[in-house]
Design a binder for these strands. Structure first.
Lengths: 340, 340
DNA sequence: TTGTACGCGTTATCAG
DNA sequence: CTGATAACGCGTACAA
């Protein structure tokens, strides 16, 4: 391995000068600079990043903790993060949790080992004490998710209002018996969406039937199974609000398998607006989260933290948008499905 | 920041002893070990990974270069890599190319900077000279992809035979006019699949019409557009072999949009067996690649390289499997669609 | 069983 | 403009 010392010797200068040429900052006589550059090329010298990082105490690397990278919702957020990071010459590492919370904890340790300068977590499932302790000392931003009573910077949409809005969309279409398929209520995110759903029903004086609220995790299969449970209840449900597009897709499959048409016999709406939603049949009415912007905003927040500048706001709330496609039945020129 | 020296001082021992306790290798008197451990806990000392890596000259980190992480095909391979890496206590970094080849080059540089111990590339789009030069000196494995005349270890299936097999499956179902939607022929992978397709047709004395071979990239939309081109040709096509499931899905959408039933009016088969394929309607007949095993095998190969052990075989060919679902029409109790 | 001392490859400080 | 030299935090001969 060729080091800076080798280059210095070969070029007949000191290592300091080579370093200066490399960092292109301090003044160096053009002649010596050229000499150094040519020997660098000649020896095919590559600076040892490890040594640099150790010396400067910064890695210019940020780790993003992703619950499940195969979900395009997360990869879209990631894209926003990466684009923004590139501008500021930061490198992004991706840590896929594969649903194992201990992986997140692991990376929360990693930052204490100085191998990254900051963390963006799209999960926030770490134990509260570890999270707060680490966040006190190191740059950490939580995106998409957030936690009650935590003092950790985060970026999200207003999940309560968004859930309320899409539920009201169904209500406006005439539905009065709307089911809700959601994920684990231990996650604040899903509690918010649930609350938005309930609040919309209440606002319109619709009956609230908690049996119509079904809890899965977040896979297609979970949506499928919970929809089957709903069907087995034999209740007059004419619409379903799934707290995520992936589960909505599963619900649609279950309905079709049971011989129900979507949206004619039962409307379905989702949440997130992932890539597949517009390709699905029927295409999905859903809440679009500004995924790329969530990514950008969270990186910017993290950058402020890493630069030790003051944070103007702890919590950043971005705008959502209701995307109306086929699965809600909006475009049908007919009445709401009759209750069974 | 608390360093090993701080711990040593506080515990009243030398840094060497602290280091020994940490690495749990050399003999240390139980009493002193306990003392050291308790002060470590007390001071909340975390070893600086950067310094460790610099000292040992290894990072126990491997980078995986992925063309597009939002494609579940790649995330499934990644899963196999990660699982295997964990066993050997290696860390995985994911580098998403977002279709930009220069990102791959960037990471090929990264290894020369010692920030990772090895590279697994699922892309292999780097310039040949850079690739070979780097591979000569550093541990590199190419998976899924491969290159002609390169001396770089790689793991794949036999794409030629697999393509031939699935084309023959269509032929056995009675199809004689089979189109092929594929990706850029600059990629050896797709040339192989094309060759398998041609070879199957030739073997069964079927006419070869190169106008029925359409080139997109690899998105749903590419499949959609190329299928529309095929339709506009007004040729008696009754089956389509798409060189990837994503494009197959696009083709199915185009067929449906044109009012053709799949598989009744036109059969479609894909390649890869990605997650969505079994959920799509109709579910996709395809070639299943052993994604997890590809991941595992490529990590194992890389490990051998990193340990500087001799490689028994440069090229590892894994088994594929034809997965028969709905889209090929195998389960229909009817004749092959009549040609238009 | 433990401590001393050196070096990993850089960058930054301080003289010159 | 350039060169010595001291860190950065750790692991490891070597000595004790």
């Amino acid at each position: 391995m060729v080091t800076i010392t080798d280059v210095a010797k070969a070029a007949g200068v000191s290592t300091a000068t080579v370093s200066r040429v490399l960092r292109n900052k301090d003044a160096v006589k053009p002649a010596t600079r050229d000499a150094v550059l040519s020997t660098i090329k000649e020896l095919n010298y590559k600076p040892n990043a490890l040594a640099q990082q150790m010396r400067t105490q910064e890695t210019r690397t940020v780790i993003v903790i992703v619950p499940d990278i195969s979900n395009t919702f997360f990869s879209d957020i990631l894209f926003g993060i990466e684009e923004c990071a590139q501008k500021y010459e930061y490198q992004i590492l991706i840590a896929d949790m594969h649903g194992q919370p201990r992986i997140e904890s692991y990376y929360f340790q990693a930052i204490q080992q100085r191998t990254v300068d900051g963390i963006i977590s799209l999960s926030a499932n770490v134990a509260k004490n570890l999270m707060e302790q680490v966040a006190e000392e190191y740059p950490i931003v939580v995106a998409n998710q957030y936690l009650e009573n935590y003092h950790i910077p985060n970026v999200t949409i207003d999940n309560i209002r968004a859930a309320e809005a899409i539920t009201e969309h169904l209500i406006r279409l005439g539905h009065t018996h709307i089911a809700h398929i959601t994920s684990q209520p231990t996650t604040l995110l899903y509690r918010d969406r649930f609350n938005g759903y309930i609040s919309a029903l209440a606002k319109h004086n619709l009956p609230i039937d908690l049996e119509l609220v079904r809890y899965g995790y977040s896979s297609i299969n979970d949506g499928y199974e919970q929809m089957n449970v709903l069907l087995s209840l034999n209740k007059p449900v004419t619409a379903v609000f799934a707290a995520g597009d992936v589960m909505a897709v599963g619900a649609i499959k279950a309905l079709k398998a049971a011989g129900r048409r979507v949206p004619e016999d039962c409307a379905v709406v989702g949440f997130d607006d992932i890539e597949i939603s517009k390709f699905w049949e029927p295409s999905l009415t859903t809440v679009r989260q500004p995924k790329k912007q969530i990514g950008e905003a969270s990186f910017r927040k993290l950058l402020t933290l890493m630069q030790k500048k003051p944070l103007t706001q702890m919590q950043e709330i971005l705008d959502y948008e209701i995307v109306i496609r086929e699965s809600c039945g909006y475009h049908l020129n007919r009445q709401v499905p009759r209750r069974q």
